[in-house]
Simulated scan of single mutants.
Amino acid sequence: MTHENAPDGASASRWSDLDRPPLNVAALRRALLVPGGLWTSLDVLPSVGSTNSDLAERAGDLPEGAVLVAEEQTAGRGRLDRSWTAPPRSGIFLSVLLRPGPQIPPERWGWLPLLGGVAAATGLARAAGTDLSLKWPNDLLVTVDGEERKTGGILAERAGDDAVVLGLGVNVSLDAGELPVPTAGSLGLANAVSTDRDPLLRAVLRSLEQWYGDWRAAGGDAGACGLQAAYAAGCATLGREVRAELPGGKALTGEAAAIDGDGRLVVTTGDGERTAVSAGDIVHLRPAD
């Protein structure tokens, strides 16, 4: 038995863990690469350093809608150059190439990672049967044993003047002993009804195609296409006491009050002042904090 895109001699190891079978590339292409659709190509690599880096390097030769998936990612990156690694075939490691076009003002491109979060959360909730929420700006959260845990993240990076590579990493079947840190989670640990990556991947890409199409049709106006409201509805950060770690070592503490029209988090401090945060880490504070 061989596997498409597997190197010579690798087929035996590809099937060494039957609880984590390889993705069915041919079936994914049949389902997703349809005439008139957003997705124009789909490749699955056995292993890659970072799907975002790999796709960005080839962006100049590819049309919009190229999809790159890895069975294993050895140097995955999150925001602020943090690493993201997981056992082979234990998660979804995905990047897509988007070209929003000149009709979308560049200042609205900042919505793309938030759009990716809404698309992933809605698609995965439908296919995995487990609740997901969003931590501003780009984390996917699940509940494990009553605790909020990060199970995935989004990373958007410019690729040349007219393209964005949007990456998604999701822990799907990791058990407690495989988590990168004890505070992480996975769909499996959140009691998902399915951890079959094929339908999960299809659901995410179909959801992403729908949200991206609506956003682009609205000229990138997140309010007009419903994206701003959808993000706010699924955002676990809103209404919480938060601490925003800002560039330059500064910090801002207050209540996360809203997501504004540019995708920024509006924080209300104790003196009633409202500040829109566009970059930085957000810590969800508990009363004891």
Rank of each mutant, 00 (worst) to 15 (best):
M1L: 06
T2W: 11
T2E: 14
E4S: 09
N5V: 04
A6I: 02
P7T: 05
D8L: 14
D8C: 05
A10H: 08
A12V: 13
S13G: 06
R14H: 10
D17M: 08
P21D: 04
L23R: 11
N24C: 08
A27Y: 06
L32P: 00
G37M: 09
G37K: 02
T40H: 12
S41N: 05
D43W: 03
S47N: 08
V48K: 01
V48A: 15
N52K: 12
S53G: 07
L55Y: 08
E57Y: 00
G60H: 12
D61L: 09
D61F: 11
L68S: 14
V69R: 02
E71N: 12
E72R: 13
E72L: 13
T74D: 13
G78R: 08
L80Y: 15
R82A: 00
S83L: 15
S83N: 03
W84N: 10
W84Y: 10
P87K: 10
P88C: 14
S90E: 09
G91M: 10
I92D: 13
F93Q: 05
L97E: 02
P100Y: 04
P100V: 02
I104C: 09
P105A: 13
P105F: 07
P105G: 04
R108A: 07
L112K: 10
L115E: 01
A125G: 15
R126E: 15
R126Q: 15
A128Q: 05
D131W: 01
L132D: 08
L132A: 06
K135P: 04
W136T: 08
P137F: 02
P137M: 02
P137L: 12
T143C: 00
V144L: 06
D145G: 04
G146V: 11
G146M: 03
E147Y: 00
E147M: 06
E147Q: 15
T151A: 15
G153T: 12
A163F: 04
A163E: 12
L166M: 10
G167L: 01
L168P: 00
V170I: 14
D175G: 03
E178I: 07
E178S: 13
V181L: 07
V181K: 03
T183K: 11
T183A: 14
S186M: 00
L187M: 04
G188N: 02
N191L: 07
V193F: 01
S194C: 07
R197P: 13
D198I: 00
P199H: 08
L200H: 12
R202V: 15
V204T: 04
L205G: 05
L205F: 01
S207V: 09
L208S: 13
E209Q: 14
W211A: 03
G213Q: 02
R216V: 13
A222N: 05
G223T: 11
A224S: 09
Q228M: 06
A229N: 03
A230F: 04
A233T: 01
G234L: 14
C235L: 09
A236S: 15
T237M: 05
L238N: 08
G239H: 05
E241W: 11
R243S: 09
R243Q: 11
A244K: 04
P247D: 14
G248Y: 11
A257K: 10
A257W: 12
L265M: 08
L265R: 01
V267M: 11
V267S: 09
T268I: 00
T269N: 10
G270V: 02
A276F: 04
A276E: 06
S278W: 14
G280N: 05
I282H: 00
I282R: 01
V283Y: 05
L285I: 03
L285M: 08
P287G: 12
P287H: 09
A288G: 03
